[in-house]
Computed example of a mutant assay.
Amino acid sequence: MATRIRPSSKRCAVIGGSGFLGRHLVERLVEKGYSVAVFDIAQRYEVPGVTFHQGDLCDKQALVKVLKDVSLVFHCASPSPACDDRNLFWKVNVEGTRTVIQACQEARVQKLVLTSSASVVFEGTDIKNGKEDLPYAKRPIDYYTETKIQQEKVVLEACSKEKDFLTVAIRPHGIFGPRDPQLVPILVDTARKGKMKFIIGDGTNLVDFTYVENVVHGHILAAEHLKPDSPLCGKAYHITNDEPIRFWDFMSQVLVGLGYDAPRYHLPYALVYGIAMLLWLITSLLRPLVNIKPTFTPMRVALAGTHHYYSCSRAKQDMGYQPVVRLKEAIARTVASYPHLRR
């Protein structure tokens, strides 16, 4: 029986490589000398030497073709957290991830690094310096979180040294940076509509915002440290900037940097959260008749008005993680990358 020649550890695939995080990850992997294949539902850019494959991650055979000579897979495909389609979240984050695992095992991929989320332990109440041993949210407050919990469980449970298939999950929080299609554009759009005048709560709540280059750095460190004898096998790791900041101070720095006024007026957290819950209930009841998307969702209000920051001590200890770009510099780079959104 012919023995299979192992592919080089520098041959990798990025599933979801056309997205915001995926593209930054692809570019950094190329810089570090990796041979990269991208699998995504659409191709949105070109990088010399990178091969692109368009397809549905629920199509196992299409995935197997791409992964057959790959030793390492990064899985960062997911619908946007702002999406309100539970079926789509379930299809991509849960069913799609099961298919990814099956394809990896069939193609005899050795390592799978999942982009999870720190929100898998968040229920809308304060988390201060949260560690990875916090229980999964029993009452996840949006479909994104609900399905990311299931996704992370499936990936970590698939880790098997006997089968030569190792997995690890990276839990970033509050990703931002150049080319982000969510945080800064939505923030500016809200400011232009005159809706960024109010601070929810007393404004003292601390939150992690994580620069995209640091998230990429965490992913690559995890991949390079993931070995049969390493503590990473089957575990989750928080990756943040390790610099908790007041949520509204961060928003104000971005807004002021782009020429907009910082929010000034305070609204009671309980009142706004109550209104958001009521609107969510009404829109849920009306959904069979009309599709309304409220601006204030319970999740958005909770993220804006509670403490939620996480410890990176496990990542520091097990893979030597340290942020490569500090928060002040990260905010400056991000603001400078959006000249078209200036006031």
Rank of each mutant, 00 (worst) to 15 (best):
K163P: 05
P178S: 11
R179E: 12
P178D: 09
V212T: 13
P135A: 06
E162Y: 01
L134I: 05
F176L: 02
P140K: 06
R171A: 02
D189K: 11
T190Q: 12
D133S: 09
G194P: 06
P181A: 07
H225L: 07
D189T: 11
Y144W: 02
Q182S: 12
F198E: 09
Y143D: 15
H219N: 01
A223L: 14
T204A: 15
K138W: 00
V188D: 02
A191M: 02
A137I: 07
V168T: 15
Q182C: 06
I186N: 05
P178F: 01
L226C: 10
G177A: 09
L226A: 12
N214W: 00
K161S: 13
H173R: 14
M196K: 06
A169W: 09
D164R: 12
K153P: 02
T147M: 10
Y144F: 15
K227N: 12
T167R: 00
I149Q: 09
A137H: 11
I141N: 14
Q150K: 14
D208T: 04
K148I: 09
E224M: 00
V184S: 08
E162I: 04
A158E: 12
G174I: 08
Q182L: 08
D180L: 06
F209N: 06
E224I: 01
H173C: 13
A222L: 05
D142R: 03
L226K: 06
R192V: 03
V188P: 01
I141H: 09
H219S: 04
D202K: 10
